[in-house]
Amino acid sequence: MAKLNLFDKFVFFLNSIAATTLLLSYLLLYVEPKRFAFVSVLSLTVPFLIIVNLLFVIYWLLKVKKQLFLSLIVLLIGFNYVTSLYKFSTSKQLESPENIAVMNYNVRLFNLFKWIPDISVAKDISEFISDKKPDIISMQEYRHDDGLLLKGYYKFEMLSGDKIRNGQAIFSKFPIINKGSIEFPNTFNNAIFVDVVKGRDTIRVYNVHLQSLKIDASKDPLKNETSENLVKRVGNTFRMQQAQADLFLEHKAKCSYKIIVCGDLNNTAYSYVYNSIKGDDLKDTFVEAGNGFGRSFDFKFFPVRIDFIMVDDHFEINGFKTFNVKLSDHFPIMSTVKVK
């Protein structure tokens, strides 16, 4: 530190705070929100902390200072965290006639309240899906809309609410032989599932929509709410998400079929609920086959990935893509998988 001028000493002080905070955040995968809700809120800041520490590495590298090793070592320790935000490898795209294309899309009620002006969202989503030709589609914040025209699909939907009936839906080109829902208490959010038959294989497809943080991506979350209230509200939401994830895992444990899990977890890949749902038996298809930023939510401040497609070890993951289609506040994601 003796060779640093006053300004660089201040920069290194800030660097130390950012590096320490990121290092501590690596433990959040194992911190139960119901016990430490306040601490678990930190998981939302991990993408920001990764980017900030990368900037500190670049700053010290340009100044040829050994202080670059602080953030560099912390980033290397959490390399799996970095690759959950950004994949440096090229996207894996293996073609096979046995591939199953699985899409997940939070459709935001098909623009019911005209968040996006002068656009027929249901019609445009229909055309997008017809172009991409997924075999299975998992939708959250779904409602019936005459503009949604999807041909050649079996469908299961579970809707609730009085004024605006909405919920989740699964579309499948493969016959559905069983279906059901996992009810979450005191909320309109839930999880649904279908069992589909492809050839000799029966596959369980889950569509999971955990409790929403209710943060408007187009606005500053602190503009109309104090930071204290925001942290308290998010902490309460994380506790609900943990209880919902536990209900899902209890249901999933009874399934003997090959499993695909899709959904909007309303939380990041650095959270307890993501870690508990993924567990040791599921693979995150973006981590295995994606590239670039895993951005699935249109948050204006930094890349956020809260939508996921996971599969168990019965599947090979042959591709993943995020589509920059602005028909919702989420971006559609699609993975191609093949039964081994």
Rank of each mutant, 00 (worst) to 15 (best):
K173F: 01
K173T: 07
K173Q: 13
F174G: 12
F174T: 13
P175K: 09
I176E: 03
I176K: 05
I176G: 07
I177D: 00
I177E: 04
I177T: 02
I177S: 04
I177N: 02
N178I: 00
N178F: 01
N178S: 11
K179F: 00
K179M: 00
K179T: 01
G180F: 00
G180D: 02
S181K: 12
S181M: 04
S181Q: 06
S181A: 07
S181L: 00
S181G: 07
I182T: 11
I182V: 15
I182C: 10
I182K: 08
E183I: 15
E183F: 10
F184C: 12
P185T: 13
P185H: 13
N186F: 08
N186H: 11
N186K: 10
N186R: 13
T187Q: 06
T187W: 07
F188D: 05
F188T: 03
F188V: 00
F188W: 05
F188S: 08
N189R: 01
N189F: 02
N189Y: 01
N190Q: 07
A191E: 06
A191D: 04
A191V: 03
I192N: 03
F193T: 03
F193C: 02
F193W: 02
F193D: 04
F193K: 04
V194I: 13
V194H: 01
D195P: 03
D195M: 02
V196Y: 15
V197I: 14
V197R: 14
K198G: 10
G199F: 04
G199H: 09
G199A: 10
R200H: 15
R200W: 11
R200S: 15
D201R: 15
D201S: 14
D201C: 08
T202A: 08
T202K: 15
T202Y: 05
I203F: 11
I203S: 06
I203K: 09
I203H: 08
I203M: 10
R204Q: 09
R204G: 08
R204W: 08
V205I: 15
V205T: 10
V205Q: 12
Y206R: 04
Y206F: 15
Y206N: 09
Y206D: 00
Y206I: 06
Y206H: 03
N207L: 06
N207G: 04
H209W: 09
H209N: 15
H209F: 08
H209G: 14
